[in-house]
Structures are given as C-alpha cells and as structure tokens.
C-alpha cells in the first residue's frame, strides 16, 4: 500500500481505495498534463529553431511524466503532489494560452 496506509491508525478499506484512486489520478492526469505543458512551453520559448524546440520538449516529456507519477506514489500525501503539479501546470497553461491567442510573446 502507498505510504499513508502505513502511518497512523489502520485505514479502512474504503479510505485505502480512495487514497490509491487519488494517487492514480494525480499520476496519470497530473503527470500527463505536466509533461504536455512542459513540452509545449519548451517548444514555444526555447531559443532555437522551432522544430528543434518542439523535438526537445517531446524528448524530455516522458521523464517529466515518470517523475510526477513516481512522486504521486512516493509522497506522504497525494494532495501535496497534486498541489505542486497544479502550481507548475496552471501558470504555464495560462502563459501558453496568452502566448498563442492573446498576442503576448
């Protein structure tokens, strides 16, 4: 079981299942979102020919995905990873949206 199960009072089956579901969600959705946004950000802003920037973002993306997925299960609480992933993703997504549609950068 992921870590929260091993700390404190013995969790109920439901609590354990919810914990696993939350971690899986953070790993899959958060991991993919972070990887995708990271790839898009690098593609947009790396100072090199854009085809190279796109490729760099792609090559790096799977490492980002794996990192978030591992952290989602390694951390003491799933919520913490969700917070940090969002803290990375949301501003980046906003900046990308503005860059693409708002005429900034």
């Amino acid at each position: 079981m992921p870590r929260s199960a091993s700390t404190g009072a013995p969790p109920t089956r439901l609590a354990a299942a919810l914990d696993v579901a939350a971690r899986t969600l953070v790993a899959a959705v958060g991991g993919y979102a972070a990887a995708a946004l990271n790839a898009a950000g690098l593609a947009r802003w790396l100072p090199m020919p854009r085809v190279e920037a796109v490729m760099t973002g792609m090559l790096a993306s799977f490492a980002v995905f794996a990192l978030v997925a591992i952290c989602a299960f390694a951390a003491a609480r799933a919520g913490r990873v969700a917070f940090w992933t969002s803290a990375y993703c949301v501003p980046l997504a906003l900046a990308l949206y503005l860059a693409k549609h708002g005429g900034v950068a």
């Binding site: 995708a36 490729m55 799977f62 990308l96």
Partner: peptide, 19 residues
Amino acid sequence: YTGLVTLASMYMPWGIAAA
C-alpha cells in the same frame, strides 16, 4: 524510453500545437 520516443509525436503532440 526510446520506445516512447519512436511515437512521441503521437503521444506528446502539444509542442507542435504550441509552436
């Protein structure tokens, strides 16, 4: 890792869309 890279433009096309 390289297996994922072989189909990267399918799995991770977001950089293309951004640039």
